[in-house]
Design a protein around this nucleic acid. Structure first.
Lengths: 243, 243
DNA sequence: CGTACTATTGATAGATATCAACGCTGGTGG
DNA sequence: CCACCAGCGTTGATATCTATCAATAGTACG
């Protein structure tokens, strides 16, 4: 059973055994971090790259008035800051939302990884998918109403969790507060709540504690116009075959 | 007088003469493209990289109901699709907003560029700045009201145009329709208009035809909470010095 | 058994969309 | 040169969506 990082990266294309071994090594040891803890804050120039092994983390910025906006979720297998080699300082914060297990990967290790051509391409692919996700979120905030917005987020998280083996065909654990969802969607927590009960009343989702069940995936994807294309889940296979 | 691409990339750090020569060559020849013309559409797997030499272009997606969301402006010196080496297909469209001059750069050329370490780092930096801009736009849509949002956009465009020598201390040509701004900000064109007159009434901007004057830069930046940090305009200087 | 966080619901205010109308401007064909 | 046309900007009236404020209820956890 490959680790979740490998699992994700191989969506782009199978990796040589040495690459997989390197990834296993990198993902072998992590340390626990409590919920609501900052891993990196704005202005930092971290020397290690952080990899999420367990739990949910997020990128966020704080507004002068104290409001928080979250613009990315990092799930197991996601890197937090592969860019620290270039930019002098972080322009945003990264923090845990739940209890997490995080691996700190030294610069040297990353360079080893990037020297392997297939692995380098896979990492680049992962970065591009993150960027495409950001674009889709922008569309989400710009063009969709609150109900669609939340539905879209649920569809995305479901799919991303499936990829790393943490979601079933229609259900998954979502350890997020409604307030976290609100800060992600640019809505108030009250309105998020109302939209969630609406989704429930419409028979689109079921909520049991911290678990979500997408009762009719086809219908919920249609209503929020979810097109998984932007996640490029099979983006690289053909490229690899022809390379 | 360096071309605008060089001008932008050297914000990250001075480049060797050979690199500058290569960039000059790349930016030497472009072809005119009419306004409102698609350069690349969703699903394409373009073989050339497009570089804007003159005019405004944008990234956008179309919703099923015909709405358009714009999530990036490309100004002179900006690449459109440096990522085509990895992803199989574009997940969004790229089109001109005004008449443009575009350079089509063959794959081979890009590879030459990336083989030069300093240039490669500069290109990587440019990509990261694009991504950081996307994040800031997400915050913009999520957390700011319509008036702040538009002000923030104006501040950003002003600064980006300044960097490439196309804006004065406080004024610049903005060849964008209010409808384009609306599709960018997730607002209706009517509301964009109202907010622009409000900004004008508040003495923050002056509009003459297609030119904008930021009458009090300090004040407008304060009111929309514009912090140029995310553009990393001097992000690399120290890094280079210490490298 | 408190205590604090989270979820839920109602009432009201504020922001933004939508619909509709009109004027301005630049271009185009006769 | 003029009349017309299309796109854009502007303004008003109304409807819809979402935030805010306030209160209550569930829930986890020491």
């Amino acid at each position: 059973m490959p680790n979740m990082l490998t699992q994700k990266l191989e969506l782009f294309g199978a990796l040589p055994d040495e690459d997989r071994a390197l990834l296993d090594e990198v993902a072998a040891q992590g340390h626990a971090v409590a919920a609501r803890t900052d891993l990196i804050i704005e202005g930092d120039a971290p020397s290690d790259v952080h990899l999420v092994l367990e739990g949910f983390a997020c990128r966020y910025k704080l507004m002068p008035d104290g409001r928080r906006h979250i613009f990315a979720f990092m799930l197991p297998g996601d890197f937090c800051d592969l860019n620290i080699f270039i930019l002098k300082a972080m322009d945003h914060n990264i923090g845990t939302l739940t209890r997490c297990v995080i691996a700190d990967i030294p610069r040297k290790r990353i360079l080893e990884m990037v020297e392997r051509p297939q692995l380098a391409r896979a990492l680049w692919w992962a970065t591009l998918v993150d960027e495409a996700t950001l674009r889709e979120w922008l569309v989400n905030l710009g063009q969709r109403g609150a109900e669609q917005r939340i539905a879209h987020l649920l569809c995305e998280i479901h799919l991303r969790l499936q990829v790393i083996g943490l979601a079933g065909a229609s259900s998954f654990k979502l350890p997020l507060t409604q307030e976290v969802i609100a800060d992600t969607m640019g809505l108030s927590n009250v309105h998020v709540n109302r939209m969630l009960v609406k989704l429930r009343d419409d028979g689109l989702i079921e909520i049991e504690g911290r678990s979500i069940d997408l009762l009719d995936i086809k219908r919920i994807r249609a209503m929020c116009d979810f097109d998984p294309n932007y996640l490029h889940l099979e983006g690289g296979r053909e490229t690899r075959a022809s390379a």
